[in-house]
């Protein structure tokens, strides 16, 4: 990785108290505090050199503090050189009860033969709005896999634009969003197949409680000449109440022959037969519906390759679904 003068945690802490508890061995942590990488006045730029395959993952923890309330925007850029292999964990948190609006413009370039896995977690509070604009370009035989976990936040809007630019490029986007109260989460995806022989998959799932609402808008665009494209997209929502609303807008634009594309979307409720079956074995209604929600979330969470991180995300998801986050009113750190 190109050496900038960034300060890597856990040598340092934020607010004198916060320490990220994601128990990943061999993870290099870096904080972006109110839009600035700790120890640097410029925006975050990370470069993996050709063939670089660090054993450790890079975790970038974006936090908002009471020092800069209101709105701000910042940029990040990640460049993965030819045949490099990288793992990123991108987190965003709010560390104060102030109202925040954060816009993050994130650019990711995956060069020929490089392989990248990103796990992104958004865990903010009800008065926080987070706008993520992510542009991803994948080169020849490059692979980009990302799992977006929107755990908590008043307003979350993820716009993800992926360009599969050279033959053999692969992109997999998975998303899990959990919203309650009056929270809303949008995932707006544009997956562009520009050349032949590229492959993409999308799986986005949401669990919506109370009066929460979500929007999934996913476009797969197969450009002229991009034959032998394979592109799949799925969006499924679990609505726990009558007041929850999920909008699903799957879109396919195909301008080439000889392609395999599909999309599917469902909105559903908890399954009464499954609930009764579990209850007839002594499991309470609350636990039975939680088991069902976890099972629903599992098909996204299982995509996270690193076991420790996957288990951590599962336990955070379970805590969130149990309503434990909303019990921590004064604390904005939500046990991450």
């Amino acid at each position: 990785m190109s050496e900038q003068n960034y300060i890597y945690a856990p040598g340092s802490t934020i607010d004198g108290s916060f320490k990220c508890k994601v128990p990943m061995k061999g993870t290099r942590q870096l904080f972006i505090v109110d839009g600035k990488p700790q120890g640097s006045p410029s925006s975050l730029t990370v470069k993996y050199a050709q063939g670089e395959r660090p054993s450790e993952a890079l975790q970038v923890i974006g936090v908002r503090t009471s020092a800069v309330p209101g709105s701000l925007s910042f940029s990040t850029s990640y460049h993965f050189g030819q045949d490099s292999v990288g793992r990123l964990i991108l987190c965003s948190h709010t560390f104060a009860e102030d109202s925040f609006e954060t816009t993050e413009n994130c650019s990711i370039v995956v060069e020929k033969g490089a392989s990248v896995e990103v796990v992104l977690m958004q865990n903010e509070h009800n008065r926080a709005a987070h706008f993520l604009n992510m542009d991803v370009v994948v080169g020849e035989n490059g692979s980009f896999k990302a799992t977006f976990i929107s755990l908590n936040g008043g307003h979350i809007e993820n716009r993800i634009n992926v360009k599969l630019e050279r033959e053999g490029a692969y992109c997999e986007l998975n998303g899990l969003y959990l919203a309650d109260g009056t929270q809303n989460v949008s995932n707006i995806i544009k997956m562009e197949h520009l050349v032949p022989g590229c492959h993409s998959k999308q799986l986005f799932k949401g669990i919506l409680d109370n009066n929460a609402n979500s929007r999934f808008s996913g476009l797969i665009k197969v450009c002229p000449g991009a034959f032998k494209t394979e592109a799949y997209q799925e969006n499924h929502n679990l609505l726990l109440t009558k007041g929850a609303v999920a909008i699903s807008e799957p879109m396919l634009e195909i301008y080439a022959d000889d392609v395999k594309c599909s999309h599917g979307a469902t909105n559903g409720r908890l399954n009464e037969d499954e609930l009764f079956y579990m209850r007839s074995r002594g499991i309470s209604l609350k636990e039975a519906s939680l088991l069902q929600q976890m099972a629903f979330a599992y098909s996204v969470l299982e995509k996270i390759s690193t076991q420790e991180l996957r288990e951590r995300m599962m336990s955070l998801t379970e805590q969130r679904l149990r309503g434990e986050f909303s019990d921590c009113r004064k604390c904005c750190k939500n046990c991450c």
Partner: peptide, 27 residues
């Protein structure tokens, strides 16, 4: 139903329900 179960009543289903994602162990 859960109270009846812990009281000691058991129903073997004619059509047992499939619950994807919930393992037998966990269940």
């Amino acid at each position: 139903p859960e109270q009846r179960s812990v009281e000691g009543l058991f129903l073997g289903f004619q059509y047992p329900i499939e619950i994807p994602g919930v393992t037998n162990v966990n269940f």
